[in-house]
């Protein structure tokens, strides 16, 4: 019985660790989706490209890990901006349907992943430079990297919420997200708000990618799984709600890991999607959505 409780505590901790990162990624994608209504699948590519930026800075150039994180943030930000300006904006100009914009995003993702593969090879790369240590709290064991995941994710998510709430640009974003036409009428420049959410969301995705590579590795196709988790977090929580995406990420992380109590480990990958399936059937507006 005690061993079971210990296991449950460990799985809950694992869920919290994964869930924090999902929350960060969910917020980064959800901000873009809620504001621009673009199903931005190429976010997965932004994450991978930014991570390669960090790996190159740390591994090739031999600069320290903090600079690697700066590189991930900057590369992510610029890359996300490039997609908005270079791919999505021209599509909006010709009034492309939402489906066509999604298809372009998909095309950009599969092309970009393969470009990464051609440039850097298919093998996984580590992001070195972090002195990993184990931490044990009672029955729960985790590493300093995982502590950093939790700390960094929550710091970034809370900072973003504060920024959206208290700054002029944050309010402009929320205005465009809730009613683009009305926002335009009262003088909010929609194009600039779009650029802004891509910059912010992509920066967060870049940092998230570097965090992932710190514990796991970087590879050309690393972005898809975490970004799928981000999609799910957003839809679980209810579109347009930042707190919803955070809660959705946590629920997802916990469900995936706590599922280990009842199912063999290799079923873990299925759980996330079953949870989503059930929520979409039972409550399409999301667990915390208003509509």
């Amino acid at each position: 019985m005690n061993a079971d409780l210990g296991l449950a505590a460990q799985l809950a901790a694992n869920g919290l660790i994964a869930g924090s990162l999902y929350a960060l990624l969910g917020v980064s994608w959800g901000l873009i989706f809620a504001t621009t209504k673009i199903f931005h699948f190429a976010h997965a590519l932004t994450l991978a490209v930014a991570t390669y930026g960090a790996v190159l800075v740390v591994e090739r150039a031999g600069l320290g890990l903090p600079l690697g994180f700066v590189a991930a943030a900057v590369v992510g930000c610029l890359f996300g901006l490039a997609i908005e300006v270079g791919v999505y904006r021209p599509l909006r100009r010709v009034n492309a349907t939402q489906l066509n914009v999604f298809l372009a995003s998909l095309g950009f993702l599969i092309a970009g992943e393969s470009v990464l593969l051609i440039l850097f090879g298919p093998e996984a790369r580590a992001l070195p430079g972090f002195a990993v240590e184990g931490i044990a709290v009672g029955p729960v064991a985790f590493t300093t990297i995982e502590a950093l995941w939790i700390g960094a994710s929550w710091a970034l998510v809370l900072a973003l919420m504060a920024w959206l709430r208290f700054t002029r640009w944050g309010r402009a974003i929320r205005a465009v997200a809730s009613n683009p036409d009305l926002a335009q009428c009262v003088g909010v420049d929609r194009a600039r708000v779009f650029v802004l959410v891509f910059a912010v969301g992509s920066t967060l995705a870049g940092i998230g990618g570097a965090l992932i590579a710190l514990r796991d590795t970087a590879s050309p196709f690393m972005g898809v799984q975490p970004v799928l988790a981000a999609f799910i977090a957003v839809f679980l929580g209810g579109i347009g709600s930042i707190p919803g995406a955070i809660a959705g990420g946590l629920v997802l992380g916990l469900a995936e890991n706590m599922g280990g109590l009842f199912l063999p480990g290799h079923w873990q990958g299925v759980i996330a999607f079953v949870v989503l399936f059930v929520v979409l059937v039972v409550r399409p507006s999301g667990l915390f959505g208003a509509r």
Binding site: V87, A96, A104, L106, G107, I110, S114, V115, I118, P122
Partner: peptide, 23 residues
């Protein structure tokens, strides 16, 4: 593996271009 990657780049790139110029 390079063949597959090049194919993916061509298909992905075409998809983006088609959505813009010939949906």
């Amino acid at each position: 593996d390079v063949v597959d990657a090049v194919r993916n780049v061509i298909f992905g790139g075409l998809l983006v271009l088609f959505m813009r110029f010939r949906p």
